[in-house]
Structures are given as structure tokens and as C-alpha cells.
Design a protein around this nucleic acid. Structure first.
Length: 604
RNA sequence: GGGGUGUUAGUUAAGUCGGUUAUAACGCCGGCCUGUCACGCCGGAGGCCAGGGGUUCGAGUCCCCUACACCCCGCCA
């Protein structure tokens, strides 16, 4: 057998060797990244996760080793022993190790490789389907290796940060009792308890609060969470949170700790000094100017709210807008500067784009030299007064294009929020992916505690039922629930929500009033959250916390195009694993064992 | 549940107005080559054009359905 591994231990990685190592006898392990066979000399680029080193096999040194080297092909896994030699005038400046090469005296092929389904190169154009099917090959590629190494550093730095600040890394169960509200849970049938189910934890929320009640004071965990919801570019069914909870704190104390972590990560990983404190923006302002609670502030282009203006002008000759306002809808405009120079075809495409999000259309107006509107469904009927008022509100200049949405608030916000970002990408204000080197962090603060749920006709918790209302708003819990704002906060970066949390409600009396406002009876509350309500009654400290989306942080730190590029083993948009075929069938016996019967009918 | 984009050798792409043998590059196989690093040169193999149905004398190309992947809406406190 070979002396490699047992006797010949690895002395260096493929990224280590420099001019300082010339003359050394070294042992390298790795994969054949490229080969160039010149007959009498075979050149191999040997790759491991640290880098690439050129290895030379010369016929007149060790003929049998040279012959074996002739058999090498891409992705063969090999061990090499040889001498480090200067490349002199043949140095390759593209390689970290480019000043040297290894003149091989021994070679072992640990394993040959069939031709891989796609090349193991930094930039490939292979379909993501193929990449996910052979994920272990995709992960051999340097960009993904770098990303996962960055991910490991984020984990490490996070543990250091919180440990330094006196936090305890404590664990919470994944298999928990189903609690209503929030994300849909994955269910796990209980074999020992027929007909009963566990839920996979969508977050450690309740348990971390209970840690506070147990007196642990400062908790953190880098923890997997599970949500059975539809996937997106930035959403996976299992994902990782940096989960934090603290006792005896207010909102600002949470911000300090988290900003400290983020600043540290950006400094250590990117060498970027982030300005502190991060911007804080009220929820209402974010909704008005950007249409959502996760604005991308790398560019401006705010929404212009025209609802009141339309009302003041009694519709101003625009019956559609008048109707929208009367039906408690809103009217918004977006000013596209003349320099963007959209063609008619492009604007028609924009209209198709917004229709896909539920818009009825995309009303527009081109602003003329005298402020008049052309190419607009509103041009003929709008009163000059309203037109001028809208122009002024938008800051419209001749040649600008105004885009309008009106109607139901939620639709207008969704459409205009997405349109704003879509236009910015088209106008080159932000890159299609990645940060463009701009890091616009902000805290979105003071959102309402409740949302009105039209389906049930009830006020429902906008976030969760244990968020602490502002003390000054508690008085409106019974009379005007929509007016109650709360200590809830989201950390936002470049249009992505990368974290969210709240100060929790630790006062059982206020808690009871919150449940009442949501139409939840004492009995119902006890049934659903009894253990937590009990805990609140026995010396619960004031506490609050936050969870950061660790995968999203890494995605933004590395400029990855999607969460799938920062998760080692991700799921497809339908939640499947193309490599293993999960989720898969189980046989009838397994189902009987857990007292489950499938109602799925493949014929339907 | 809805809207959109895509699917052609192992891989990435081309394929005209529907026309007879579906091209190319990389990879793969065989041969040559001692300074390459996107090595080079000569030769070769490789295709259920995603699947099903339809229109047609004739379909990779036109139509319908399905599957899968991706982006978005809904959903995700």
C-alpha cells in the first residue's frame, strides 16, 4: 500500500507554498484542477480548499511517476510528494503560489473521477438544477467554498461577540408543541402518543423568553428554524437564526449589542467600518415613502403620497382616483426622472410587471415643458390645479415620467415597493445582485401592535401576541387598537429584513388586555399559551430580544445571488432536495406506526 | 392558488419561413508533444431536441396539456 496518509502526512495545503519554501520536500493532497500534458512533462494544477499549486512530473526524474501522471484527469483525487522549486521567469501571477511549483517524486491516485456533469470552475453557467443535483461537486467550486468559509467565520465571530459580553449559549428544543399564529409548522407525528403531533419550531421564541424567566439573563443561540411556507430567493424552509434575548433592557440596549455584532462582522470580514448608530426610521415613514418595512436606502426615489391632495381637490377631474380615495384606498406616485428615458414598449412591460402583482394597470403621465401631462389617461380630464399640485408634490421636471397607483392600500404598497426597486435596477442605481459596496443599515421602529384582519373582522397581532405596547398607547387598547404602537424593531439592510425582535410584554395585566383586544378569551389564551402566562405571573423580568437571519447576513456579506448559495444543502423552490430526492415516499407500515393515513390521491 | 421566464450531445449554446444527414465550443476517448498555466496539433465517439397529445405530406421549430427549475404575488408575526 501507499505510504501516503499513513506515513506521508500532508505538510502544506495547496494555498500555502511561497518563495520561502523553496527547497523543501512537501506532501500535498488535493484534486486535479487542470492538466497540461506535454509528453515529457506533465503539469497539474492541484486544488484544495486553500488554493491551487502547480505540480510538475518530468519524464527524466521518475519515469514511472511520470507515466502515472499521464493518466491523471480532471477531479482525480491524489497525493503528491515533491520538492518546492522556484518558477523563476515562468511565475504565474494569477496564483497565490505562482512563484513556485512542486517537482513531484511520488504520486498516488486515491480515486479516479468520471467526467463531472459540469466543470469545477469559479464561473459556470450550468443550470441550478444540475448544481443542486450534484451539490457536493458544486461545493468544490471556489466561490461556494469561500462563502461557506465566511459562514464559518460569522459563526465564530458571533460566538465570540456574545460570549465576550456575558451571554450564555443555550439550546432549545426543535420538537415543540404547535402554537397557533405565525408561520405554518412542519408536523411530526408522535409514535408514542397516537394521533398527536409535534411541531418543528419556527423559532425558539417562547423558550428564550422562558430562559429569561428562569433567570439566565443573557441568552444567545445560533439555531435552525423551520417554516413550512413557500420559498423565495431569500427564504428556505430551514434556515439559521442568530437568536438573542436579554433581561432588564429597553430597545436601545438591544440595538447596542446587535450593532456591535454587525459592526464587528463587517470590520473583520470585509474590512468595512460602519458608521454608528444605525439610522432609525418609524414604520409609518417607511410605509409612506417606500411601501414596505424593509426599504432599500441605497437609492432615493421615494413614493409620493397623493391621497390627501386628491381628496382636497375633490378628485380633480379624475373619477378613478376620487373613487379610490372614497373607498378608503390610497393614491401614490413615483417620479421617474427624464434621464431614465423609458420607451413606450418598456413602460408597457412595466404595466405587465405590476399587473402580475395585483395592480389593475399602470397609469402614467409624461410631464411637459409647462407642466402639462401627455401620454396619460388623466391628461384630458385632470384639473390644472390638481395637476400642478401633483407636479409640485412629486418635484416633477419637464421630461419626467410620473407613475401612479391607487386603490387598496396593501396592493398599492406592494406594487409601488416592488416597482421602486425594479426601476432602480433598470436605471442602474443599484446592481441586480450584491451591494455595490453600499451598506445602508437601518432600524425600522414603532410599528402598530395590531393589524386588522379583514377575513375574521378582528384585530390580530401584527407580529406576536407578546410584544410590549408603548406605555403611552396602552390607554387605547380598548378604544382604538389600531392606534397602539409597540416596541418592535426590524434591522434592514439594502432591502432585506435581516433581523427582527421586540421588547416583550411582561405585565400579566396588560397582557390580558391585549388578548381581549384580539378577541381571545381567557380560556383560549390559557389553552394556547398557558405555560407562558403562568410564567409571567411568577416574577418574570422585563425582557426583550431579537433574531438575525444568519443566512441572509452571509448572503449580503458575500454578495451571493440567493440564499441557496450560502446554504450548503439547500432546497428548491418546491422544497425538494434534488440530490437525495427528499421528501420521499414511506411505506404503509411506517405510516401505521405513527398512526397516519395519507389522503393524497395521485389521480387528482 | 395566481403571473412570468426557461428546458436541444456530459456541459454551455446555435438551429432561418415548418423541409430531408440537428451544428459549434468545452469536456470525454485514441495518438503526438519538456515550460504549459484557457497549452498546442491530428483523429474519434457522443442526441428519446424535458414528457405526452395535436396540426401537417413533413415538427427541435406551430398549438394544447403535464413535469421540473428559476423570479414574483398570495403566504412568511
Amino acid at each position: 500500500m501507499s505510504r501516503f496518509i499513513t506515513e506521508l502526512k500532508r505538510t502544506h495545503t495547496c494555498g500555502d507554498l511561497t518563495r520561502d519554501d523553496i527547497g523543501k520536500d512537501v506532501v500535498l493532497f488535493g484534486w486535479v484542477n487542470n492538466r497540461r500534458d506535454h509528453g515529457g512533462a506533465v503539469f497539474i494544477d492541484l486544488r484544495d480548499r486553500a488554493g491551487v499549486t502547480q505540480v510538475v512530473f518530468e519524464e527524466d526524474v521518475r519515469p514511472e511517476v511520470h507515466d502515472l501522471a499521464g493518466q491523471l484527469r480532471l477531479e482525480y483525487c491524489v497525493g503528491v510528494r515533491g520538492k518546492v522549486v522556484s518558477r523563476g521567469g515562468n511565475a504565474n501571477p494569477k496564483l497565490k503560489t505562482g512563484e513556485i511549483e512542486v517537482h513531484a517524486t511520488d504520486l498516488e491516485i486515491f480515486n479516479r473521477s468520471e467526467p463531472t456533469p459540469f466543470p469545477i470552475e469559479d464561473k459556470i453557467e450550468t443550470s441550478e438544477e444540475k448544481r443542486l443535483q450534484y451539490r457536493y461537486l458544486d461545493l468544490r467550486r471556489a466561490p461556494l467554498q469561500k462563502t461557506l468559509m465566511t459562514r464559518a467565520r460569522v459563526n465564530h465571530l458571533t460566538r465570540n461577540h456574545f460570549t465576550d459580553k456575558g451571554f450564555l449559549e443555550l439550546e432549545t428544543p426543535f420538537m415543540v408543541k404547535y402554537t397557533p399564529g405565525g408561520a405554518r409548522n412542519f408536523l411530526v407525528p408522535s409514535r408514542l402518543n397516537p394521533g398527536k403531533f409535534y411541531a418543528l419550531a419556527e423559532s425558539p421564541q417562547l423558550f428564550k423568553q422562558l430562559y429569561m424567566m428562569a433567570g439566565f439573563d443573557r441568552y444567545f443561540q445560533i439555531v435552525r428554524c423551520f417554516r413550512d411556507e413557500d420559498l423565495r430567493l431569500d427564504r428556505q424552509p430551514e434556515f439559521t437564526q442568530i437568536d438573542v434575548e436579554m433581561s432588564f433592557v429597553e430597545q436601545n440596549d438591544i440595538f447596542d449589542v446587535i450593532e456591535g455584532l454587525v459592526v464587528r462582522l463587517w470590520k473583520e470580514i470585509l474590512g468595512v467600518e460602519l458608521p454608528q448608530p444605525f439610522l432609525r426610521m418609524p414604520f409609518d415613514e417607511s410605509m409612506a415613502k417606500y411601501g414596505n418595512d424593509k426599504p432599500d436606502l441605497r437609492f432615493d426615489m421615494p413614493h409620493v403620497v397623493l391621497t390627501d391632495l386628491v381628496r382636497q381637490h375633490d378628485g380633480g377631474g379624475l373619477p378613478l382616483l376620487e373613487e379610490a380615495v372614497k373607498a378608503k384606498g390610497i393614491v401614490k406616485a413615483l417620479r421617474v426622472p427624464a434621464s431614465a428615458n423609458f420607451s413606450r414598449t418598456e413602460i408597457d412591460k412595466l404595466e405587465e410587471y405590476v399587473k402580475g402583482m395585483g395592480a389593475k394597470g399602470l397609469a402614467r403621465a409624461k410631464v411637459g415643458e409647462g407642466g402639462e401631462w401627455t401620454q396619460s389617461p388623466f391628461a384630458k380630464t385632470v384639473t390644472p390645479a390638481l395637476r400642478q399640485a401633483i407636479n409640485a408634490a412629486c418635484g416633477a421636471q419637464p421630461g419626467d415620467l410620473l407613475l401612479f397607483q391607487f386603490g387598496k392600500e396593501s396592493v398599492v404598497h406592494t406594487v409601488m415597493a416592488n416597482l421602486r426597486v425594479h426601476l432602480a435596477k433598470r436605471m442602474g442605481l443599484i446592481p441586480e445582485y450584491g451591494s455595490g459596496g453600499q451598506w445602508r443599515f437601518l432600524w425600522v421602529v414603532n410599528p402598530p401592535l395590531f393589524e386588522f384582519d379583514e377575513q375574521s373582522g378582528q384585530w390580530a397581532a401584527a407580529h406576536h401576541a407578546f410584544t410590549r405596547p408603548h406605555d403611552t398607547d396602552v390607554q387605547y387598547l380598548e378604544t382604538d387598537p389600531g392606534r397602539v404602537n409597540c416596541y418592535r424593531y426590524d434591522l434592514v439592510l439594502n432591502g432585506f429584513e435581516i433581523g427582527g425582535g421586540s421588547i416583550r410584554l411582561h405585565d400579566p395585566a396588560v397582557q390580558a388586555r391585549v388578548f381581549k383586544a384580539m378577541g381571545i378569551s381567557d380560556e383560549e389564551a390559557k389553552n394556547k399559551f398557558g405555560f407562558l402566562l403562568d410564567a409571567l405571573k411568577m416574577g418574570a423580568p422585563p425582557h426583550g430580544g431579537i433574531a438575525l437571519g444568519m443566512d441572509r447576513l452571509v448572503m449580503l456579506l458575500t454578495g451571493a445571488e440567493s440564499l441557496r448559495d450560502v446554504v450548503a444543502w439547500p432546497k428548491t423552490q418546491k422544497g425538494t432536495d434534488l440530490m437525495t430526492g427528499a421528501p420521499g415516499d414511506v411505506d404503509a407500515k411506517q405510516l401505521r406506526e405513527v398512526y397516519v393515513k395519507s389522503t393524497y390521491d395521485p389521480g387528482k
